[in-house]
Nucleic acid binder design. Structure first.
Lengths: 133, 133
DNA sequence: CTGACTGCAAACGTTTTGCACGGTA
DNA sequence: TACCGTGCAAAACGTTTGCAGTCAG
C-alpha cells in the first residue's frame, strides 16, 4: 500500500512504520478497538508500544485520517475516514459493517420539527447479520 | 414524583433516596453525564458519594431503567428510558434534544442492501439548534 | 540536521471494588 | 429481620505524559 505515506504526509504527519502499520491493519480489518489494533500491529512490529497506538490514533483522528465509532455496549472502534456512512453491528458475531443510508429524511425531520441545522449524522444499527441469521 | 419508587420496585431495585434523586434530576435535566449527575444529586443529598452514582447508573442501565447515550467528542450522558428516539446535539450550546425519527427507510435499507435484521437504531445528529442559529 | 516520533515507565483521571454500617421491603 | 444499598478508601483500569534516544523529511 504505497498511498498511506502520501496520505500521512498530506495531513502533516510523518510516515512512520507504526502509523503505516496501523493504517494497513485498519484497511484490512475494517474496524478495530485499541486493544485489537495493538495486537495486530504487534504482529508486524513486535516492539511497538501501546502508548504509540494511543498517540497515533489520536493524532490521526485530529488530522481527520481516522474516525472513532462509538458503539453501544462496546469499546469504541476506529476506521479510516472515507465517504460518510453508518454502521451495522451484529450482536452475534460482533462484525461491524459499513452501510450507506439515505439520510435526507432524518435531516429534513430535524430541520422541520426542531429547526435544527446539520449535515453530520451518526447512525448505528444493532441486529443480526446475513451470516448469523 | 411518586412513580419513581414504583418504577424501581418493578425493576427489582430498592427505592432508595439516592436512586430517586438520580431519576428526579434526570427527569428535570433530560441528559446528564456522571459528573453533572453527581453535582445535581449532591444538591439534594450532600452526603451522596460518586461511587453510588456510578453503581446506580450501572444497575439502572442493567435493569433497563436508564440508557447510556454515547456522543461524539463528549462524555456519555444518561437518560430515563422512554419510547425509542434519536438525539440532536448542538455544538454551540451543548444542549441535547430528543427527536423522533422515522427510521423505516434506514431499516429497509439495512434489510435490502445488507440482509441485516434489526429494530434497534442509534441516531445522533450534530449541528446547530434553533436558539443558536 | 532538526523537529517529530518512539518505547518505556510513571502519572493521571475515571470507574470499580471491599468493607462495615444503615435502610428498604 | 434479611439483604440490598450506601459511603468511604483503596484498588484497578484505561489513557496520557515526560523523557532520552531515534528516525523521517
Amino acid at each position: 500500500m504505497k498511498e498511506f505515506p502520501i496520505l500521512l504526509n498530506q495531513n502533516q504527519l510523518k510516515a512512520t512504520p507504526q502509523r503505516i502499520a496501523i493504517l494497513e491493519v485498519l484497511q484490512k480489518m475494517g474496524h478495530l478497538n485499541v486493544d485489537d489494533l495493538f495486537a495486530f500491529v504487534k504482529k508486524k512490529q513486535s516492539s511497538v508500544s501501546l502508548a504509540t497506538i494511543y498517540t497515533n490514533v489520536n493524532s490521526m483522528i485530529n488530522k481527520m485520517v481516522l474516525s472513532e465509532v462509538k458503539l453501544p455496549n462496546r469499546k469504541s472502534v476506529y476506521e479510516i475516514i472515507k465517504i460518510p456512512h453508518g454502521h451495522l453491528v451484529c450482536t452475534k458475531c460482533n462484525t461491524i459493517y459499513d452501510a450507506e443510508f439515505s439520510t435526507d429524511t432524518l435531516l429534513q425531520e430535524a430541520s422541520k420539527n426542531h429547526e435544527f441545522k446539520t449535515k453530520k449524522t451518526d447512525i448505528v444499527l444493532e441486529g443480526v447479520c446475513k451470516n448469523c441469521s
